[in-house]
Amino acid sequence: MDLIDGVKIKRLRVIPDERGRLMEMLRCDDDLFIKFGQAYITTAYPGVVKGWHYHKKQTDNFVVVKGMMKVVLYDSREDSPTKGAINEFFMGEHNPILLQIPPYVFHGFKCISETEAMVVNFPTEPYNYDDPDEFRVHPHDNDIPYDWARKDG
Score class of each variant (00 low, 15 high):
residue 25 M to I: 13
residue 26 L to K: 04
residue 26 L to P: 06
residue 27 R to C: 11
residue 27 R to N: 13
residue 29 D to L: 03
residue 29 D to Y: 14
residue 31 D to K: 10
residue 31 D to S: 08
residue 32 L to P: 02
residue 32 L to T: 15
residue 33 F to D: 04
residue 33 F to K: 04
residue 35 K to Q: 15
residue 36 F to R: 05
residue 36 F to K: 00
residue 37 G to D: 11
residue 38 Q to G: 00
residue 39 A to L: 13
residue 39 A to I: 12
residue 41 I to L: 15
residue 41 I to A: 14
residue 42 T to A: 08
residue 42 T to K: 03
residue 42 T to I: 01
residue 42 T to C: 03
residue 44 A to C: 07
residue 44 A to N: 04
residue 44 A to K: 03
residue 46 P to M: 04
residue 46 P to S: 09
residue 47 G to K: 07
residue 47 G to S: 06
residue 47 G to N: 05
residue 47 G to I: 00
residue 48 V to S: 08
residue 49 V to E: 08
residue 50 K to N: 11
residue 51 G to T: 05
residue 51 G to A: 11
residue 51 G to W: 08
residue 52 W to V: 04
residue 52 W to L: 03
residue 52 W to H: 02
residue 53 H to G: 06
residue 53 H to L: 04
residue 55 H to Q: 02
residue 56 K to C: 10
residue 57 K to V: 07
residue 58 Q to L: 08
residue 58 Q to Y: 07
residue 59 T to I: 08
residue 60 D to G: 05
residue 60 D to R: 02
residue 60 D to Y: 02
residue 60 D to W: 00
residue 60 D to A: 01
residue 61 N to E: 09
residue 61 N to W: 09
residue 62 F to V: 01
residue 63 V to T: 15
residue 63 V to K: 00
residue 64 V to I: 13
residue 64 V to M: 08
residue 64 V to A: 01
residue 65 V to R: 04
residue 65 V to L: 06
residue 65 V to G: 10
residue 65 V to S: 12
residue 66 K to H: 14
residue 66 K to F: 13
residue 66 K to G: 11
residue 67 G to W: 10
residue 67 G to V: 03
residue 67 G to F: 09
residue 68 M to N: 11
residue 68 M to I: 01
residue 68 M to V: 07
residue 68 M to T: 01
residue 69 M to N: 10
residue 69 M to W: 13
residue 70 K to E: 15
residue 70 K to T: 05
residue 70 K to P: 05
residue 70 K to I: 05
residue 70 K to A: 13
residue 70 K to F: 10
residue 71 V to K: 04
residue 71 V to C: 12
residue 72 V to I: 09
residue 73 L to N: 04
residue 76 S to T: 02
residue 76 S to F: 12
residue 77 R to E: 04
residue 77 R to C: 09
residue 78 E to D: 15
residue 79 D to L: 01
residue 80 S to I: 01
residue 81 P to D: 11
residue 81 P to I: 06
residue 82 T to I: 09
residue 84 G to V: 00
residue 84 G to D: 09
residue 85 A to H: 14
residue 85 A to W: 12
